[in-house]
Nucleic acid binder design. Structure first.
Length: 638
RNA sequence: GCCCAAGUAGCUCAGGGGUAGAGCAACUGAUUCGUAAUCAGUAGGUCGUAGGUUCAAAUCCUAUCUUGGGCACCA
């Protein structure tokens, strides 16, 4: 007897061993049809796994997250099968499920064309229609290596060869195609359905190493239903509409051109946004006990040699040979310069913690392929600061920083921030005791600040662990903005010290920290986050006064003057055009407020307030409207 | 840096060996009009750059730059 407990609490008894498929069929033909796999005692298994002892069982369908992942994984396998049928000389490598879809890396001398993608996709649908059973086989490792070698799949053979030789491995066979895979898989190719689409081809290095050969990666998306697929494609279209590069152009915020690759030309509107952001964060820093400084752009190589940047970061630095035969570097970071200010004059423990902030303009020679709009550039400005403190102060300073960061993000409407904790890398400076303390303090402080962190093992800086705060852009890409790094190394290398209570000289600890990250990236994220419809306080142009007829011109000028006097960023539209056109144009330009004035408003000294996206207007007395708008336009920190 | 794709009017895009096209924007004129497109007319381009093939190149070839999507990178 085999007793199988189902998620609803019921138990089914069977005389002997059954498969998951039998149980599903037993429960109902609808469920059997939808069944993709099973979960036995919490573990994902093939639908046709034999159940010969008591267990808990859940039938997994496309509605379950695990089922969807399975579906995507199978889509990758079906794609590989299609490719092998169409282009037998191609070697297969790996093909996992990823967020929203899947990919498969192929090795072949000629790259796939967009045309090939269509053919592959069509063949995939044929394979689905063929309804090929997908079955698991267990092989001996060495035989599997031999087998894949014999059919010319040297990448597969290499993967299997890296598995310990005493382990058996599982292969999955569907039609003529056989692939190494841990599984589980769908029972047959028909279960994949047709809610998938191949998206793009891209190069990808074998085993993710740029020293290896480049493979052809084909990306696809796959869903449980056609409706979900459609929704996803629609979401991508919407995301494209809020791409910061598109909106930056539409709203006349900035541009980038060939002669200054990786650097932003800020137009007046974009620069207004930039200045608003800068002034906001400056106020926040001042209120949090930071001192703002300004350090040089060009610094002699000797300082970078002393700090270690010349050796560790040299490839990313712009350098200049001067007529007097010196070599200067355009600063890629502010930290060494900040240490110079710290070193200037004797510091006492009473001066600590010393929080030194700079809106430091930095240049880094980023690889050409890394550049991306204004999100990843070669010239950028950080809201950078270094906190010089004692080891005892690390926790308190970290908590205070996290609080400040959360509060700043909240002011922009970012509530769900991903935080990664990067711990000690293999190559590092400092003793294990120091690392224990630094990591412990950082983790404890993150917890105290109410942050949930995911571990990013071995990704810390060579001088200390770090917290990375990431925000997600319109199309799901994560961008690191804020950071906090604990550094015991630079104070040592650049000989920073303070006088302790016992009048001995001690090394301070440096906390490198940024909230926005870079203004360029953060503004890019803001543009996408708000789709260009900025809240009043950030909007480059806050109010447009639009007239209905020229009779209202004089009054409109008065209204504009009142707005100017209240410190609002306002424009005047006196053109001889219909109000419909004016409303349309300023709405498309995403101006938060349009004040419509006609003859009536002039006589009554009122304005008709029309808010972006709103259908109705509100008629207010001029003074009242200006006061209300001025209040709305105040930055959160003021 | 590597793989693929794309660069045509201010913007969005069509054209694919035989004198360069559309819509919107711009400009000119008319229209003075109550909340997302008033009408008419005019002007606008070394087809990314440099070579080559050809009687003839935006179109084919080569190189190069830039952009986009990935990969690698991101102290």
């Amino acid at each position: 007897m085999v007793a199988i407990s189902l998620p609803d609490g019921s138990v089914r008894q069977y005389d002997g061993a059954v498969t998951g498929a039998d149980v599903a069929k037993d429960i109902g033909p609808g469920l059997f049809k939808a069944a993709l796999a099973i979960k036995v005692d919490g573990e994902m298994k093939d639908l046709y796994t034999v159940l010969d002892r008591d267990c808990t069982l859940a039938i997994v369908t496309g509605k379950d997250p695990e089922g969807l992942e399975l579906l995507r994984h199978d889509a990758a396998h079906v794609m590989a099968e299609a490719v092998k049928e169409l282009y037998p000389e191609t070697q297969v490598t790996i093909g996992p499920a990823i967020e929203n879809g899947f990919y498969y890396d192929f090795a072949r001398s000629t790259p796939f064309t967009p045309d090939d993608l269509e053919k592959i996709e069509a063949r995939m649908r044929e394979i689905v229609a063929r309804d090929e059973p997908i079955r698991r086989e267990v092989w001996n490792r060495d035989e599997a290596v031999k087998f894949f070698d014999s059919i010319g799949e040297k990448y597969k053979a290499e993967i299997i060869a890296s598995i310990p030789s005493n382990e058996d491995i599982s292969l999955y066979r569907q039609g003529e195609f056989i692939d190494l895979c841990r599984g589980p898989h769908l029972p047959s190719t028909a279960r994949l359905g047709n809610a998938f689409k191949l998206m793009k081809v891209a190069g990808a290095y074998w085993r993710g190493d740029s020293r290896n050969e480049m493979l052809q990666r084909v990306y696809g998306t796959a869903w449980a239903t056609e409706k979900q697929l459609k929704e996803y494609l629609h979401m991508l279209e919407e995301a494209e509409k809020r791409d910061h590069r598109r909106i930056g152009k539409e709203m006349d915020l900035f541009h980038i051109q060939e002669e200054a690759v990786g650097s932003v030309f800020w137009h007046h509107k974009g620069w207004t946004l930039y200045r608003t952001l800068e002034s906001y964060i400056r106020t926040r820093l001042e209120k949090s006990g930071y001192q703002e400084v300004r350090t040089p752009q060009l610094v002699d190589r000797s300082l970078w040699e002393a700090s270690g940047h010349w050796e560790k970061f040299g490839e990313n630095m712009f350098t200049i040979d001067t007529p007097d035969e010196r070599v200067l570097a355009v600063k890629p970071m502010n930290c060494p310069c900040h240490v110079q200010i710290f070193r200037h004059g004797l510091k006492s423990y009473r001066d600590l913690p010393l929080r030194m902030a700079e809106f430091g303009s930095c240049h880094r020679y980023e690889p050409s392929g890394a550049l991306h709009g204004i999100m990843r550039v070669r010239a950028f400005t950080q809201d950078d600061a270094h906190i010089f403190c004692t080891e005892d102060q690390i926790t308190a300073e970290t908590v205070a920083f996290c609080e400040l960061l959360k509060s700043v993000y909240k002011d922009f409407g970012f509530e769900d921030v991903r935080v990664k904790f990067s711990d000690r890398p293999a190559v590092r400076a400092g003793s294990d005791e120091v690392w224990d303390q630094a990591e412990g303090a950082l983790l404890e402080a993150a917890k105290a600040a109410g942050l949930e962190t995911t571990l990013n093992p071995g990704e810390g800086a060579f001088y200390g662990p770090k917290l990375e705060f990431t925000l997600r852009d319109a199309i799901g890409r994560d961008w690191q903005c804020g950071t906090l790094q604990v550094d015991f190394v630079l104070p040592e290398r650049l000989d920073a010290s303070y006088i302790a209570p016992d009048s001995s000289r001690k090394r301070p600890v440096m906390l490198h920290r940024a909230i926005l990250g870079s203004f360029e990236r953060f503004i890019g994220i803001l543009i996408e986050h708000f789709a260009g419809r900025f809240p009043m306080w950030l909007a480059p142009l806050q109010v447009v006064v639009a007239t209905i007829t020229n009779d209202a011109d004089d009054y409109a000028r008065e209204v504009k003057a009142a707005l100017d006097a209240a410190g609002l960023r306002a424009d005047l539209d006196l053109r001889n055009e219909k109000i419909n056109l004016k409303v349309r144009e300023h709405s498309l330009a995403k101006v938060p407020v349009i004040l419509v004035v006609g003859k009536r408003e002039g006589e009554e000294r009122t304005v008709a307030v029309r808010r972006l996206g709103g259908q109705q207007q509100e008629v207010l007395a001029l003074e009242q409207a200006v006061a209300t708008l001025a209040q709305e336009a105040a930055p959160p920190a003021a």
